[in-house]
Design a protein around this nucleic acid. Structure first.
Length: 417
RNA sequence: GGUCGGUUGGCCGAGCGGUUAGGCACUGGUCUGCAAAACCAGCUACAGCGGUUCAAAUCCGCUACCGACCUCCA
């Protein structure tokens, strides 16, 4: 059973600056960002974590872990600050095993930087820092009035809520070193264990091939993406489209956002979702022209192969192709296979990838009878060869984002709100 | 400068030594009153230069670009 925990980093600096600027309490700023983050996650159909602990609520645990590391001889205190002794740690452990760094090379490379003079070596990192007078968020500790080091919060909170050895730790590739490397060192130094079984690092995002950065002016927020309010975007993109777009690339590769790529994703997703809906109502035959069981195996293989979502999606499009071909009378499917086909869509597209049609057109008391009436009138004019009227109806509906399709049994419609 | 990773067709994006990835766009065909959708077919690439191999987008080397990290920033 997965027990997701999302670590809300509510540390100093940016938050403190913002708080001074807005004349609010630091924790009010944290709340504003947390709320906005939750809204975006909800829209993207991302499930809520079981717990979202905050670093500032776990000062006691962080002080204890610091003390444990000192007691075990892997940290030292200087002027009220406590530093992790990386060189000593490395003599009995392997600092760099996650990121592939070699300590000797790191030591050679370390530059002389301000604020380093307290440390024995440049590679050492702070477990506890004594606060300067202007520092807003600070707490008493055995060493000083201060605040915990950055790497410590993850170690203490994950250990508290997930146990001191848990299955999966995620995060961006930019955190691999030094942050995650230090988490391992802290856990080893405190209790002699690796904290994590599997590390999953996702790659970074680029915009039109360039890295996303505020200075380049190509920084796009999720809110802007959903609203279409950015100069690089020609339109708003549904959260579902953004989700699908992200899943079409592997998480370990860089993801390149662009307007054209998002437009392509929107069309592709539409095709997929229409296929899923259609598969629920196509006719069955005595036998099948496609191997549905094999298709399911391919899907399992793809997602089992380091979450290869792009390959999984390519198999789902094969399922859509089969659905459409059956619908067009060019292929056939048995009753059992259709059931299996629908469960492929349900299991992989809906449950695993979290893709589903927006519920803005089903069972509308006003829309449905109105559309029945309009399409009925159009059908009559077509029967009378009054194509001027029938085309006018179709054109106006099209402008309202209602697409009509003339099929054998009548005209169907769909609304892309 | 150091370490690591990337460079795939018009665009996005899989691929881990031999087989059509997939999506979008485009072209032709079927269907349609005309469309749309759908189906069928076509376009079919691996940064450059060498090397290994019966066989390389895939392995090795060099070059050129791009990026991440190495900045007590969470």
């Amino acid at each position: 059973m997965a027990e997701p925990a999302d670590d809300a980093e509510d540390g100093e600096d940016k938050i403190a600056k913002k708080a001074r600027l807005e004349q609010l309490e630091p924790m009010e700023i944290v709340q504003i960002y947390t709320d906005s983050y939750h809204r975006s996650m909800d829209m993207l159909n991302i499930r809520h974590p079981s717990i979202e602990p905050r670093a500032s609520g776990h000062i006691i645990e962080q002080i204890k872990m610091t003390q444990d590391i000192i007691d075990n001889g892997f940290a030292y205190e200087v002027n009220g600050s406590v530093y992790f002794d990386v060189v000593k740690y490395n003599s009995s452990n392997n600092y760099g095993k996650l990121s592939g760094r070699v300590l000797d090379e790191l030591l050679e490379n370390t530059r002389d930087l301000a604020g380093q003079e307290e440390k024995r070596n440049g590679v050492d990192f702070a477990l506890w820092k004594k606060a300067e007078p202007e520092h807003i968020m600070k707490w008493p500790s055995p060493w000083s009035l201060g605040f915990p080091g950055w790497h410590l919060e993850c170690s203490t909170m994950s250990a508290k809520y997930l146990g001191d050895y848990f299955d999966i730790h995620g995060g961006g590739m930019d955190l691999l070193f030094p942050h995650h490397e230090c988490e391992i060192a802290q856990s080893q130094a405190a209790n002699g264990k690796d904290p994590v079984k599997y590390w999953i690092h996702n790659n970074m995002i680029t915009i039109d091939g360039q890295k996303m950065s505020k200075s380049l002016g190509n920084f796009i927020t999720l809110e802007e993406l959903f609203a279409g309010s950015h100069k690089l975007l020609s339109q708003a993109f549904e959260p579902g489209t953004v989700r699908f777009f992200i899943l079409q690339a592997h998480y370990r590769g860089t993801l390149d956002f662009s307007n054209t790529a998002l437009e392509a994703a929107e069309k592709g997703l539409n095709k997929l979702l229409n296929g899923i809906i259609l598969a629920k109502k196509i006719a069955t035959a005595d036998n099948s022209t496609s191997n549905i069981a094999k298709l399911r195996e391919e899907c399992i293989k793809a997602i089992s192969d380091d979450f290869n979502t792009p390959v999984l999606i390519s198999h789902l499009f094969e399922a859509v192709r089969i659905t459409n071909s059956v619908n067009a009378g060019e292929e056939s499917i048995s009753k059992d296979d259709l059931k299996s086909l629908n469960s492929i869509f349900e299991d992989f597209a809906v449950d695993i990838l979290g893709l589903s049609k927006n519920q803005n057109q089903q069972g509308d008391n006003l829309m449905d009878p109105l559309m029945d009436l309009i399409l009925d009138i159009r059908q009559e004019s077509r029967a009378n060869k009054d194509f001027a009227t029938s085309d006018k109806i179709r054109d106006v509906l099209s402008k309202l984002n209602i697409t009509t399709k003339d099929e054998d049994g009548g005209t169907s419609w769909s609304y892309e709100g």
